[in-house]
Nucleic acid binder design. Structure first.
Lengths: 147, 147
DNA sequence: AATGAAAGTCATGTTTT
DNA sequence: AAAACATGACTTTCATT
């Protein structure tokens, strides 16, 4: 039941409790109670807006593999990447690279700048970039049933 | 002004027009008109919920580079990756790989299964996986001012 | 029978349109 | 300004003990 509510809210976070209730056969207050509980228990972390980056002037995107010096901590990478507004995602990963950073920029020039700034971080030994040519799939936050 | 409204809605998609209006010194109806316009012009693509994947039982994540046969089209990759519910993102990229796929799975076993299914796609010649060890940064949809 | 969790109903102030 | 919505208080239901 909670799962269905979350799925509906994922599809449209601004739909009313009554609307959701109609779809899951529950009264509006019942839905609200569940949503409140889901929020305070941390399942729902918040509600956000899906913005078309291109419409706001951000047309270029890249994934950059970071190779770091031996004693680099995830915390260091977090702090460093958060300083750059172009970073929309950062992950430590297994494999050759130490981290993967997702960048969004206005254009190639801007991306190049951001990349230079990133490469200037003291713990970065080298990088490998993949520039996004086209976004094929991007699901906001899917909640498929866990098996 | 629209930018500030979008930023506020990004922070909380369920805040009321009155609330937003108070912060940007506009009346509630004025804010609504702007939001309606932003929606129909495609700047705002929708409203969604940020769910903690771990809280729903999805604890494993990976980025997979796809190497494809010569005559593979983006459309083919789109169709193929959409078939797999574990795919939360897919992009064609420049660089060694042809595409980058973002996967979310319940656990390592599930991830392995999904990966096997992906590798079985006829146009995939090989893959290279990066398993996410920790998510350091993940901004929902940031709207920094374009320069 | 008694407890507690969860749903329904209704009233009121707020928000949407 | 009218209709729809959110939200709190209160009651009911039902499963568990």
């Amino acid at each position: 039941m909670d799962q269905r509510i979350v799925a509906l809210l994922t599809a449209d976070a601004r739909s009313s409790y009554a609307e959701i209730g109609a779809k899951v056969s529950l009264s509006a207050p019942a839905v609200k109670r569940r949503v409140d509980r889901l929020r305070s228990s941390g399942v729902i972390k918040g509600f956000t807006t899906v913005v078309d980056p291109a419409a706001v002037g951000w047309t270029t995107e890249a994934f950059v593999e970071l190779f770091c010096t031996g004693r680099t901590t995830p915390a260091q990478i977090t702090v460093a990447t958060r300083r750059h507004p172009e970073v929309v995602g950062a992950y430590t990963v297994s494999g050759e690279a130490d981290a993967l950073v997702h960048l969004r920029a206005a254009d190639i020039g801007h991306l190049e700048q951001a990349l230079e700034r990133l490469r200037a971080e003291p713990f970065v030994t080298s990088t490998r970039s993949m520039i996004v040519l086209s976004r094929l799939v991007e699901t906001p936050t899917p909640v498929p049933a866990p098996e």
